[in-house]
Nucleic acid binder design. Sequence first.
RNA 1: GCCCUCAUCGUCUAGGGGACUAGGACGUCAGCCUUUCAAGCUGAAGACAGGGAUUCGAAUUCCCUUGAGGGCACCA
Length: 482
Amino acid sequence: MSRSEIRVRFAPSPTGYPHLGNIRTALFNWLFARHHGGKFILRIEDTDVARKVEGAVENITESLKWLGLDWDEGPYFQSQRLPLYQEIARKLIDQGHAYLCYCSPHRLEEMRQEQIRRKQPPKYDRHCRELTVQQRAQLEASGVTPVVRFKTPLDGETSLHDLIRAKVTFQNDTLDDFILLKSDGYPTYHLANVVDDHLMAISHVLRADEWLSSTPRHILLYQALDWQPPQFAHLPMILGPDRAKLSKRHGATNIVDYQKQGLLPEAMINFLSLLGWSLDDKTELLSREELIKHFTLERVGKTAAIFNKDKLDWMNGVYLRRFTPEQFALQAIPFLQRDLPSSVKRPLDDTYISIIMPLIQERARTLGDVPGLADFFFLDELEYDQSLLIKAMDAVSATKAIETSLESLKSLEAWNAVSVENILRPLATELGLTTSNFFALLRVAITGRTTSPPLFQTMAALGKERCLKRLNNALQKLNPKP
RNA sequence: GCCCUCAUCGUCUAGGGGACUAGGACGUCAGCCUUUCAAGCUGAAGACAGGGAUUCGAAUUCCCUUGAGGGCACCA
């Protein structure tokens, strides 16, 4: 791999399922790689044994696959590369850039509490930084397993030229001697991340803004190891509606949940791409190819964004309406299978579905809306309140209207939207009703609700038999048998 | 407490000194279309956090204040 090759990585830790923020980071890395013809690498940073979540790795790969964010290398697992980090840690100790620390978690915690109480920045007090040979031998003999700490320079400053934030400078004395290798032999994020980014020849690190503060540590590490650091680009964060960092408590954080809700990967990609990036002052709908073509870091913003589900749903509706009726039906079927009431017999009739789905398509924002919008097409018995039938007229008029309709429809041979309308529309005047009130009555009788797809198309789709049955049922509802 | 970052309509954003009476989108409201809903169309309300400075001229540059976010773990 040549020095100039663009290589980026998505490096999640399997301590939970990826949320919108994580995936947006993955997306920007992927777009950056694809735009430049570079490589997108997946690396699992599983160095926290205690917080490891079962199934997280699978969820991560599933999420990426669902969105079509294909990776060129990996997944690499840091847990399988332990000797590498240990060797580097050893080397840093030998070269005087790191040291063994024997402080107990208990002591560190007490120290921290005391510092906070005294309103001082909580920092390691470098207790073990300059231990004598005798002290070290004594601690070693006591059986304490040490950690390895980095010997952060006591003065000077460290800066980076972030591709998004420009030059950012930190005073070294605000940093402390952070841990490189934990007592269980696993590296911390700082060590593993730097080592792997170097070994994997990562050219650009595109990560969330929350990492900006630890970047000087990483730079210092690169310097100590005499390695060329990659280019950094810290992406603006995605915040929850409460303006706080996205976390479990913000509801549907797991990206796979959006799939379950019936969001389309195309819409997700499009929407996410616009969180922190824009093409111009107008364009909002962009295909995957267009995003790849136009994505550049120059057009990534600096301000954190609050994720707005309403807009995601709207955009998803746009994508849904773009489908051909066949595509839409195909996408909707799994949701119908899953969410239609259990009283509806499975498997569902594909032909019937293909007839009714066009009536649903422009009314759904997500595929998850479909079963709720279409259930009355499948139910044998409609459940609705009698009062809906007599909203605009009394029970006598309603009964007469339905009886008349029934009578006229009974003999209709060619059952379609036009023929049904031709029968019913004239009846309104005949009955002395406004079409609005008359059709509203029929709508309730036919669908069991006050809003639905266009009445005559709905009736055509339902078929003559179902419609007549429902009208009869409505009559019974209006005139209950004593 | 210390460090870092950020700051345009409720939300996502355009804007990189004069083209800004600040543009687009979601949402909201009104109207049209219409058998309801949806979609579509038209329109409306809605923002440069505050204060200094630089400049003939500042949303755009600089400083301060304020606000928001992030970081300060043997978590990533």
